[in-house]
């Protein structure tokens, strides 16, 4: 009986590994296969693996390379700037929602959380026209404030749930020592919230990194275009060069994959604490 159970477990784990890593593993194989071999070979693994696709993509002075590296830099900088913009504002709101009673609190809170269900296309037409007037099209700041508007529900939700669990007495003691509310927030509440702040920052990073439709419409120029948009352009430009497409795709996975694996504990906690935007 015990032995049988062991086998079921091993087979289940094997299935999960193939399901989760299979497509990535196969993409690695394709990315090191030469164009010639891809069409002619009858074997499953390439006979002469090569790194030329990666070399092309990571070389600044080649045409695909400069576009790719620029996309990588755009994705990185936009993700980091979005964290810097969203997190402080979310902290202030979350603190107000979880610690201070005020008129209209519940209405505003639900009014914020419900925006989670609004599809991006419902806002983007008007945003496109507004940003056109304000000169925010094709600018990173334009993208960042749109992302902020769509990440607030989740970040505020995660943070205020956490603030609710902290004992009020700690803050009250600080107030007696002459702290204002804001000082109490910075000196008492935030130092006890690093794991959640970190989880929120990571989720914002991942969500920004994975954006596609919004930058495609709002900022499809080389100066702002993120990696996701650059890679889809590869598909139309080099539709037969599957090695290049998979190599590019895999390189784009490295930052989010790295975060997911290294910080899995934080993310698993954050995932459950909030309802993650899909």
């Amino acid at each position: 009986m015990k032995k049988k159970f062991q086998w079921v477990y091993i087979l289940s784990v094997a299935f999960l590994i193939i399901w989760s890593l299979g497509p990535i593993a196969w993409s690695i194989v394709m990315s090191v296969t030469t164009q010639k071999e891809m069409f002619s070979s009858t074997t499953i693994l390439p006979q002469e693996p090569t790194l030329t696709n990666y070399q092309k993509l990571l070389k600044q002075d080649s045409k695909p390379g400069s576009a790719f590296l620029r996309g990588m830099r755009n994705s990185l900088s936009t993700s980091i700037l979005t964290i810097a913009f969203v997190l402080p504002i979310a902290v202030l709101s979350a603190y107000a929602f979880s610690r201070i009673k005020f008129k209209g609190r519940e209405v505003i809170r639900i009014g914020l959380l419900i925006t989670f269900v609004v599809p991006a296309l419902a806002t983007i037409i008007t945003l496109y026209q507004m940003f056109g007037l304000w000169g925010l099209l094709d600018k990173k700041i334009g993208l960042i404030i749109i992302y902020a508007s769509s990440f607030f529900p989740l970040s505020v939700w995660m943070l205020s749930n956490h603030f609710c669990t902290l004992p009020r007495e700690l803050e009250e003691a600080a107030w007696l020592d002459g702290c204002t509310r804001i000082q109490g927030l910075f000196k008492v509440v935030l130092p006890l919230s690093y794991p959640v702040l970190f989880a929120a920052a990571l989720t914002i990073f991942l969500n920004t990194w994975n954006q596609f439709m919004i930058p495609l419409i709002m900022a499809p120029v080389p100066e702002t275009k993120p990696l996701t948009v650059v890679i889809t352009e590869f598909v139309t430009k080099h539709s037969t060069e599957y090695g290049m497409i998979t190599a590019g795709g895999l390189l784009a996975l490295i930052p989010p994959a790295f975060i997911a694996i290294i910080f899995r504990k934080y993310i698993a906690g954050g995932l459950v604490a909030g309802s993650v935007k899909g």
């Binding site: 784990v13 999960l16 590994i17 989760s20 890593l21 299979g22 497509p23 990535i24 196969w26 993409s27 194989v29 394709m30 296969t33 891809m38 069409f39 499953i44 991942l206 990194w209 994975n210 596609f212 990696l227 996701t228 890679i231 889809t232 598909v235 599957y242 497409i245 998979t246 795709g249 895999l250 784009a252 996975l253 989010p256 994959a257 975060i259 997911a260 694996i261 899995r264 993310i267 698993a268 995932l271």
Partner: peptide, 30 residues
Amino acid sequence: VLAITILPWALPPIVNGLLWRGVFHPQFGI
């Protein structure tokens, strides 16, 4: 096991589609 099962959640959906397209490619898909 936790790390590998979480992994696909973190990845860009648009890129996921491209990788899976390689898996199901009629000529050189696995």
